[in-house]
Design a protein around this nucleic acid. Structure first.
Length: 533
RNA sequence: GCGGCUAUAGUUCAGCGGCAGAACGCCUGACUGUGGCUCAGGAUGUCGUGGGUUCGAUCCCCACUAGCCGCCCCA
C-alpha cells in the first residue's frame, strides 16, 4: 500500500517547534492588544469572485495560483462530460480550427483506433469549467497569449452522435445552463484582507462610526512552487484599520501608527536587522496616470531589456521597477518616477506619515520603486525586509487600500493593513537563536509495580490540579527504565512504591542536582515549584 | 510554470555494476528501588516509485514523484 504523505507544499509542525509558533502568536496578541486591536476570524474559503474583484483578476495569484473548485449539488463531472461529448462529437469530423481568430473556447477532435481524442483550446477566464472536463490540462504558450490552456480528452467511441453546428461560445452556455445553475465557485483564501473587508461590509461595521481595528492569524493557500519559507498552506498574521472617513480612517496618523506597531512588534520578538521600506503609489487616479506614462516611456526602450522585463512592460509595467536585473538598471533609472505623479493631497499625506514616524523615532527608507502586486493598494505601501532571508527578503508587506470596500460593493471605507508571512518570520527567529529545547515536565511519577498504577494516577491528578506539568509513568516499567524516561521528560522523578504509598511520604529526586529527598504528599507541589525552572 | 542539485536505517550522511555501511538515537544486559558516564551485545532498510540496459542494478539510462536552491510571482 502506498504510504500517504503530506501533500506537496504542506507540512506538519511538531513539538518543540510549535512552542516557537505559540510564542510568536502570544507576542502578537499581547502587542496588538496594546493598540486596541480585536481578533477577527473569517472563513478559510470564500466566493471566488471576492478575490477576483479584490486582489485583481489579472494578478498571477488570481489567474493561476488559487485553489478553486465548483461547489454545487447538481454538478456531475462525468455526466456533464458525457453529455457534452455526445452533443458535439460530430463537429470534430469536419471542423478546422482557426487559432488566430481567438474564439472564446474551441476544440478539435480526431478519431483514433476505437477512441476519440479531443483537444480544447480555452481562455481561462471564460472556460475553466470546460477545461475541468479534460483528462489532461496544460498551459499552452501561445505567442499571442490569447489562450491560457489546452485540455485533452480521450474517450471510447460513442455510437450515438448528435450533429451540432459551430456557433462560437454556445458550448459553454449549454454546459453552464444545464449543470451549473445551483453551483458556486469557491476558493481557498490566498490572502485575508479581502475577507476582512467583506466581513466589514457584510456586518455593516462602518455604521458604528468607529474605526475598526482587526487582526487575524491563520492559514492561507496559494498554489505556487514550494521553496524555502514558501508553502502552499502558509500562515499569515495581519491587521487592518478600516472605517468611514469620518472616523479618521484616511488619516496619515493611522499609517504611522500601524508602522510603529510593527516596529515594536519586531523589537519585542528580538528580531534585529530589519528595514522598513516605504513608498507612496498615489491615489486611485494617480496610479493609472503613472502606469500610462510608464507604458509610454517603456515602449521605445523595452526591446533592449531582459525578456522578463519585456513581458512585464506589457502585463504589469509597475513590476519593471522591481526588477533585480542589473543589465536593465540604466534604462530603469530613466523611467518616470511615481513621486512626480502624485497629486497634492497624496504628497501631503505621505509627508505626514513620514513626519509622524520621525517624531517617534522609527527608522525607514524611502524606495520610490516599491510597488506592490495587488491591485487594491493606494497611497502608502511598505515592506519590512530582512537580510537573513536571501532572495525572498520581505518579512511582511502592506499598504493603504482606500477603494477596496467600494470595489467589493461596499461603502466608502478607506483602510490600511499588512500581512506577515509567519513561516518566514519563524525561519528568521530560528536562524537567530538555538533550537528550542523540548519542554520538561515538572515531575515524572514512577509507580513501582502495577498495583501502584491507580494510586499514581490519583497523585498525578492531585498535582496537575495544582498546576504542575506531570508525566505519568507505568508500574510495568522497571525502575531503571523509569529513571531513563524520567530523565528525558522531566526535571524531577517521584517514586511511588509500597513504602511511599503506605506512609504518604514520597521519594523525590532532582535530575539536575542528583539530590534525593523525602517529601510529604501535601508539600509536593510547593517543593516542585521551588525546585526551580 | 521554467532551470539546477538531491533522494540509502528513526536522524545526519558515507558507499559500490556482485554479502547494505558509519555516527548519533533505539532495545537488552553488566545494575531485581536509582538516570546521566562507561562497557558488552542486539534490531533496524521495498537503497523515493515505475520502467529499461545487464548474467546480475542501490549504483548506469529514461520517466515520474518529492525535497532543497534559484527564476517567475508575491503577503
Amino acid at each position: 500500500m502506498t504510504v500517504l504523505k503530506a501533500v506537496r507544499g504542506t507540512r506538519d509542525l511538531l513539538p518543540p517547534e510549535t512552542e516557537l509558533w505559540n510564542r510568536v502568536e502570544a507576542t502578537t496578541r499581547r502587542v496588538f492588544a496594546r493598540y486596541n486591536f480585536g481578533e477577527i476570524r473569517t472563513p478559510i474559503f470564500e466566493d471566488t469572485s471576492l478575490f477576483a474583484r479584490g486582489v485583481g483578476e489579472e494578478t498571477d495569484i488570481v489567474s493561476k495560483e488559487m485553489y478553486t473548485w465548483e461547489d454545487g449539488e447538481r454538478f456531475d463531472r462525468d455526466l456533464l462530460r458525457d453529455k457534452w461529448l455526445r452533443e458535439n462529437i460530430a463537429r470534430f469530423e469536419s471542423w478546422s480550427l482557426d487559432r488566430t481568430a481567438a474564439p472564446k473556447a474551441d476544440f478539435e477532435g480526431q478519431q483514433m483506433d476505437g477512441s476519440w481524442e479531443f483537444v480544447i483550446f480555452a481562455s481561462q477566464t471564460t472556460s475553466s469549467q470546460l477545461l475541468s472536463l479534460a483528462d489532461e490540462v496544460r498551459e499552452w504558450n501561445a505567442a499571442s497569449g490569447r489562450f491560457r490552456g489546452i485540455g485533452r480528452i480521450v474517450i471510447p467511441t460513442i455510437s450515438e452522435a448528435a450533429v451540432v453546428t459551430t456557433p462560437e461560445g454556445i458550448l459553454i452556455e449549454k454546459v453552464s445552463g444545464a449543470f451549473h445553475k445551483s453551483s458556486q465557485s469557491l476558493t481557498l483564501r490566498p490572502e485575508n484582507t479581502a475577507g476582512v473587508v467583506r466581513a466589514y461590509i457584510e456586518h455593516k461595521l462602518g455604521e458604528s462610526g468607529l474605526l475598526q481595528k482587526l487582526f487575524y492569524i491563520g492559514p492561507q493557500f496559494r498554489r505556487e512552487r514550494p521553496q524555502k519559507g514558501r508553502y502552499r498552506q502558509f500562515w499569515q498574521i495581519g491587521a487592518e484599520v478600516i472605517g468611514p472617513p469620518s472616523a479618521g480612517s484616511e488619516s496619515p496618523l493611522r499609517d504611522a501608527e500601524v508602522l510603529e506597531m510593527l516596529a515594536s512588534f519586531l523589537d519585542e520578538l528580538n528580531i534585529t536587522g530589519w528595514t522598513l521600506v516605504l513608498n507612496s503609489v498615489g491615489s486611485a487616479t494617480d496610479r493609472p496616470k503613472y502606469v500610462a506614462a510608464l507604458r509610454e516611456a517603456l515602449a521605445p526602450v523595452k526591446d533592449q531589456m531582459s525578456p522578463d522585463n519585456q513581458r512585464r512592460a506589457e502585463t504589469n509595467p509597475l513590476r519593471v521597477l522591481d526588477s533585480k536585473d542589473p543589465a536593465d538598471e540604466a534604462i530603469i533609472a530613466t523611467l518616470p518616477k511615481i513621486a512626480d505623479f502624485l497629486d497634492d493631497e497624496s504628497k501631503a499625506h505621505f509627508a505626514a506619515v513620514l513626519a509622524a514616524l520621525d517624531a517617534c523615532g522609527v527608522q525607514y527608507e524611502i524606495n520610490p520603486r516599491l510597488v506592490r502586486g495587488l491591485d487594491y493598494y493606494t497611497r502608502t505601501t511598505f515592506e519590512f525586509t530582512h537580510d537573513g532571508l536571501g532572495a525572498q527578503n520581505a518579512l511582511l508587506g502592506g499598504g493603504r487600500y482606500d477603494g477596496l470596500s467600494e470595489m467589493l460593493g461596499g461603502p466608502k471605507a478607506p483602510g490600511i493593513g499588512f500581512a506577515m508571512g509567519l513561516d518566514r518570520l519563524i525561519l528568521t527567529l530560528q536562524s537567530a537563536e538555538a533550537e528550542p529545547a523540548p519542554v520538561l515536565a515538572d515531575a515524572f511519577i514512577a509507580p513501582l509495580g502495577e498495583a501502584l498504577n491507580a494510586p499514581a494516577l490519583a497523585l498525578a491528578r492531585d498535582l496537575r490540579r495544582q498546576g504542575m506539568r506531570i508525566e505519568l509513568g507505568d508500574g510495568a516499567f522497571r525502575i531503571r527504565k523509569s529513571f531513563e524516561i524520567g530523565n528525558k521528560l522531566a526535571r524531577n522523578i517521584i517514586l511511588l512504591g509500597e513504602d511511599e504509598h503506605a506512609s504518604g511520604i514520597l521519594t523525590v529526586k532532582n535530575f539536575a542536582t542528583g539530590e534525593q529527598t523525602k517529601i510529604p504528599r501535601g508539600d509536593l507541589a510547593q517543593a516542585l515549584r521551588s525546585s526551580g525552572n
